[in-house]
């Protein structure tokens, strides 16, 4: 049996990675379980300078999911390099630094700065729907996806994962653009743009008005998009969107994901990613299989 997967030459002991923005920098969750139980962790989105984020309320529950508009609050990349990155260097887990910017120069600057990090990979957040300059502008048109990916790949020595937005005309075109720009992998999906409304006040619930939808309700959308991208590109795909159990992981891998990310489930159950990794490992052992053999094995109906 084998649960180990490889992306851009980097080995993950299992395909379970925590999703950016749901896991901080791992410190809080490390009080619940050893981070080494996971394949990888993806950091909170980092920007060149510290960012305060949006006013509250920043999140609200919706049926089978939630909306958030945190707005990329983070202490800035220098703080990360001086503190969390060093702490994470002692953990036996792949660390992926999620980075965001407002301009192409921002992305280039942070891509260069991450060269000094312990973090082994970079995930480009070009699809944050919650800040005006959250990089969403880079995530919509295939031409700009390619441009920003190529610009970071050009300066960053670490493998670059481009995180794709579902709020686009054709996500497979954007996956192709990321591949053309030199991305080592793509991750998808980021949150779906949405709104929650209070009928009494006639106002949106979130201070930011709009937010990003995540949780089990988005899983069918994510599975379809992973399959579409799997058929469009040769680079590995990291699938995410509403994963709460090891069977969800199997479904994403069958649709073409080489690894997956667990996000909102961390809020419902603080040990969710740990539980899923354990259950997946048990399943693979019971089946005596290599988990890589599942990738892209979807059998379409007649």
């Amino acid at each position: 049996m084998n649960t180990c997967v490889e992306i851009a030459g980097i080995k993950f002991k299992n395909p379970i990675v925590t999703a950016s923005g749901t896991f901080g920098f791992g410190e809080e969750y490390s009080h619940f379980y050893p981070l080494s139980a996971l394949g990888g962790i993806c950091t909170k989105g980092l920007t060149i300078r510290p960012k305060q984020g949006n006013p509250p309320p920043r999140a609200t529950e919706t049926y089978g999911g939630m909306l958030n508009a945190v707005g990329l609050q983070n202490p800035g990349v220098e703080h990360f390099l001086a503190t969390d990155d060093k702490r994470l260097a002692d953990e036996d887990v792949v660390v992926i630094a999620n980075v965001a910017g407002s301009t192409l120069d921002d992305y280039i600057a942070i891509g260069e700065r991450i060269n000094d990090a312990h973090a082994q990979m970079v995930e480009l957040n070009i699809s944050c729907p919650n800040v005006k300059e959250g990089g969403m502008a880079f995530g919509v048109l295939p031409s700009s996806v390619e441009k920003v990916t190529a610009a970071v790949v050009n300066v960053c020595k670490k493998p670059v994962i481009t995180k794709l937005s579902p709020n686009v005309a054709n996500i497979a075109d954007n996956a192709r653009a990321a591949e053309a720009g030199g991305a080592a992998a793509v991750s998808l999906i980021n949150t779906l743009s949405g709104m929650a409304v209070n009928y009494k006040t006639r106002r949106p619930v979130l201070a930011n008005n709009n937010g990003g939808l995540s949780g089990p309700c988005v899983k069918p959308v994510a599975l379809k998009m992973v399959w579409d991208c799997y058929n469009a590109v040769k680079i590995p795909i990291i699938g995410l969107g509403g994963i709460t159990s090891y069977t969800d992981v199997l479904e994403f891998m069958i649709c073409g994901a080489r690894a997956v990310q667990v996000g909102t489930a961390n809020f419902t159950v603080p040990t969710a990613a740990y539980d899923i990794a354990r259950d997946l490992t048990d399943y693979v052992a019971r089946q005596d299989m290599d988990i890589n053999d599942l990738v892209g094995t979807l059998i379409l109906n007649g």
Partner: peptide, 12 residues
């Protein structure tokens, strides 16, 4: 309104 409740998600 809270998400994780343990200080990681910055929602509250």
């Amino acid at each position: 309104r809270m998400g994780c409740g343990i200080g990681a998600c910055l929602v509250c």
